[in-house]
Amino acid sequence: MELFSQSWAALRTAVAETPDDDFGLPSGCAGWLVRDLVCHLVIDAQDVLITLVTPAESEPTRNAATYWEVSHTPPTGDDLLDALIPRLAAAYGDPGLLRFHLDDLGSAAGRAAVLADRAARVSTKGQVLTVGDYLSAYVLEWTLHHLDLIAHRPSATAPPAETLGTARALLEEIAEAPFPTEFSDTDVLLIGTGRRTPTDVERAAAGELAERLPLVLA
């Protein structure tokens, strides 16, 4: 719960500190500007709120690692929702409106997470998870998108070290293999999810794992 709150607060703070002019810069999500990514975060916050008030009675079918659908093909932008996001983001016009909407929904999602029973079961995407596993999965989501937000803004504040390490550990669980210890947590997340192409040296160090990358999460 603490890491969910920490990663989400850090991401929302990073958005709040993003200058208006930077909303038109590319993000780390292929084909999306920073404003498109922030619009996606608004939808993510809605999803958290919806899931936390969608109780389930059956046994969990997924955990924090298996929550993710994994492919090895980066998105092309042809997915209907992926294509819709830039149009929604453009409709806001003023970056301040996007910031306000994210702060409004994001604060509510953060409060709902703090109040939720970690052992309770919730339903999302046709699957059942405990609240604890669901929120743990989102530490990875928030941390990746924090890196996406600052991908072309080197002076921006990076995600907290604690959440980077937790996100790395979960990605290694998803990969069913550890990344080389010499890789930083940030490099593991960027290379592992296809946000950065590994160098020849990095690919050699990763060995057989490199052949199974990227891990595209949805």
Rank of each mutant, 00 (worst) to 15 (best):
E202L: 10
D21S: 13
R121H: 15
L3F: 07
E202C: 06
F4Y: 15
C39V: 06
P154E: 05
L215G: 06
T197P: 00
T51N: 07
R35N: 01
V122H: 09
R111N: 13
I174E: 01
A56Y: 11
D187P: 02
V53E: 13
V53C: 10
Y67R: 04
L81S: 13
A119W: 10
S5H: 12
T124E: 11
P60Y: 11
F100Q: 14
C29R: 11
P154K: 03
E211A: 14
S7R: 04
L52H: 02
T51A: 15
V38F: 00
L49T: 06
A210F: 02
E202N: 06
A205C: 06
T181K: 12
L11P: 07
E182C: 12
T54E: 11
A30K: 13
L98V: 05
R87A: 10
R212K: 12
T18I: 00
R121G: 09
A112V: 01
P198T: 11
E202V: 08
L105I: 04
A112N: 05
M1W: 03
S107P: 03
D103E: 14
D20Q: 10
L41C: 13
E141T: 10
L11D: 04
A90L: 02
V42E: 12
A175S: 06
R195Y: 02
E172T: 07
A10E: 02
V42C: 09
N63M: 09
A205S: 14
I150G: 08
S136A: 15
R212P: 03
R99K: 13
A116M: 02
D21P: 10
P74E: 04
D21T: 14
L115V: 12
T66Y: 09
D22K: 05
L189A: 01
D133I: 05
